[in-house]
Amino acid sequence: MSFFSFQLFRNQRVTPFTDPTARFEAGRFGMWLLIATLAVIFASTLMAYVFVRLSPNNIGNWPPPHMPPLPQALLLSTIFLIASSGTMHVATLAARRGEPGVGVWMVATLCLGCAFLGVQTYAWIDAMRDNMAFTKHLYAWTFYVLTVLHALHVIGGLLPMLVTTRNAVRGLYGPERLAGITYCGMYWHFLDAAWIVLYATLLWGSTR
C-alpha cells in the first residue's frame, strides 16, 4: 500500500517547467523568498529583544548582577559557522567548475555545522551551570530563545545538508547539476549571516 502510494506520488509531474534551466532559476528565486521570510522572523525577534533591552525597566539592570556575561564559547561557535560557510562556498564553486573535491568540502561543511551545534550546546550547559537559568531573568530568557531559535534553523538545515553531502560524495554535482547544492548553500550562508547579526546584537545587549 505504502509502496503503491509512493509510486502514485512519483508518477505525477513534479514540475511545470520544461526547461531545466528555467526550473533551476525558479528554484533559486523560491529560495530567496524563503530566506526573506526567515529574515523577517529573525529581524522581528531581534527587534523584540532590542525593545525589551532598552525598556526603562531593564536599563542599568542588564545583565543583572547575579548573572554572568555571555558564554565565551559563542566566539568559537561563530568561528565554526563562518568557516562552514567558507567550505560550503568552496564546495559550490568546485561543483560549478566541475572540479573534484565537492564531496570533501561538503563533508567538511557538515562537520563544521555539527561542531557549531555542539559548541552551542556546550554554551547553554555552561551558562546554566553559571546560574544563568532560563526562568530567572529576561536576560537569560532572551539569550536562550534567540540562540535556540537559530539552532533550530541549523538543525532544520542539517537534514537537507546530509542529503546534499551524500550526493556530493557520490559525485552527483557538476556544472550540469547544481540545484541541490546551490539551494543548500543559499540557506547555509543565510544562517551564517543571521547568526552574525544575532550574536552582535546579543553582544551589544549584554554590555551595560
Binding site: A36, V40, A48, F51, F134, V145
Partner: peptide, 24 residues
C-alpha cells in the same frame, strides 16, 4: 511571505511564555 513570519514568532513567544511563566 513578509507579514506572516511575524505572527509565527509572536505566537511562539506567547506559547513559550505560557508554558514557562516568564517572557517578554
Amino acid at each position: 511571505i513578509l507579514a506572516t513570519p511575524v505572527l509565527a514568532i509572536t505566537l511562539s513567544l506567547l506559547a513559550v511564555e505560557r508554558i514557562f511563566h516568564i517572557g517578554i
